[in-house]
């Protein structure tokens, strides 16, 4: 594990959530684990003593407004890590800092207050309350906060609209399809307008088409309010589509943190390489990575630096000569050689 393969949080935004050497071991003798010196924490040593190292020494920073995706195979410790961040699972060791404050030191009351006001969570199996209507489910977190009934209901109605369930306010969860149920789950998690948004494989129980719809929905809702989102999935396409950065876990350890492009072009281990082997490079490599710095003031055709090569493919095949590259504000920052770009496009097809 080298820092080379851990891309830090974007420097232009404040860090809002950090994990520092977080461990979670399951087993009879969890308490004695803290006394162990470093070498005795190797996977083989843990296994010998009947301990499961579900999360091992996880460290990372997440910046405001980032979508941080945790990815890995089944049993690699994604859910455990996510639950350590919210303290739904008590980490065995380490620090979880929200705006620099360690929540592992918080007593029960302030922790509940923190969750109530600043965190929202979407669950894999929706976790809807079967005895409440759509509206009642969405209003539930507000009700727990002690908000007046009329106000809570008004907020919930607005959210029903946002997730596209108008007209179904009074249905019971059992009368909804899976996709609709998860829409309710999403609306509920946003009812308190949380700063941190946790999603644990929210779409793995849904059909591919519905999944794509909801992914777009999640992106829209996250961008609109600059929420910091931590998203667990085992679906690489989903991760690429949503993530600013992806953390890859392998049996409890984070083996690499980076953009989708980092993973494909500079995989940290064989494990990561095999993981991303099926991804066409053009889908993740951005124009900015292939461009040269010389600016061509008179170029007619321009492409944005942040686009992937696949996204600008129609323009690559339609003409000849280099293209001008522009940054977010439209200013020229460099130029893209058509041949280089086309070669990338042809790779992995």
């Amino acid at each position: 594990m080298s820092d080379l393969h851990h891309r830090p949080a974007p420097a232009d935004r404040p860090v809002v959530l950090s994990a520092r050497s977080v461990w979670k071991v399951f087993g009879e003798d969890e308490a004695a684990f803290r006394a162990r010196p470093g070498p005795n924490r190797a996977p083989a040593a843990l296994e010998r003593d009947g301990l499961v190292g579900a999360v091992q020494e996880a460290s990372f920073d997440i910046a405001r407004g980032e979508v941080f995706v945790i990815m890995g195979l089944s049993g690699s410790g994604k859910s455990t890590l996510l639950r350590c961040l919210t303290r739904l699972i008590e980490p065995t060791e380490g620090e979880i800092l929200y705006h620099g404050e360690d929540i592992l030191k918080l007593p029960e009351k302030p922790l509940a207050e923190l969750r109530r006001t600043r965190m929202g969570m979407v669950f894999q199996h929706f976790a809807l309350l079967p005895n409440r209507t759509v509206l009642g489910n969405i209003a539930f977190p507000l009700e727990v906060q002690g908000m007046a009934r009329a106000e809570a209901e008004a907020r919930a109605r607005a959210l029903v609209e946002v997730v596209g369930l108008s007209g179904r306010e009074d249905r019971m969860p059992s009368q909804l399809s899976g996709g609709q149920q998860q829409r309710v789950g999403i609306a509920r998690s946003l009812a308190t307008d949380p700063e941190f948004w946790f999603l644990d494989e929210p779409f793995s129980a849904l059909d591919p088409l519905i999944r794509a719809d909801l992914q777009a929905e999640v992106l829209r809702l996250q961008r609109e309010h600059q929420r910091t989102a931590i998203f667990v999935t085992h679906d690489l396409d989903e991760a690429i589509r949503l993530a600013d950065r992806i953390a890859i876990m392998e049996s409890g350890r984070i083996v690499q943190i980076g953009t989708a492009e980092d993973l494909v072009t500079r995989p940290a281990t064989d494990y990561v390489r095999r993981f991303v082997a099926k991804v066409p490079p053009a889908k993740v490599i951005r124009v900015a990575s292939l461009m040269s710095a010389e600016v061509m003031p008179d170029a007619v055709e321009t492409v944005p630096a942040a686009s992937t090569i696949a996204a600008v493919a129609p323009r690559l095949v339609a003409g000849s000569g280099p293209l001008a590259v522009t940054d977010a504000s439209g200013l020229p920052v460099g130029c893209l050689d058509r041949q280089t770009a086309l070669r990338t496009l042809a790779e992995g097809v």
């Binding site: 509940a112 109530r116 309350l129 977190p141 727990v144 946790f198």
Partner: peptide, 24 residues
């Protein structure tokens, strides 16, 4: 998951019992 929902919504023990566990 339903119990986790209660915790993430910041339910007190009392609220967890009466608003989540018993109705479910």
């Amino acid at each position: 998951e339903t119990l986790e929902l209660a915790k993430m919504s910041g339910c007190s023990r009392h609220q967890t019992l009466w608003k989540v566990e018993l109705p479910v």
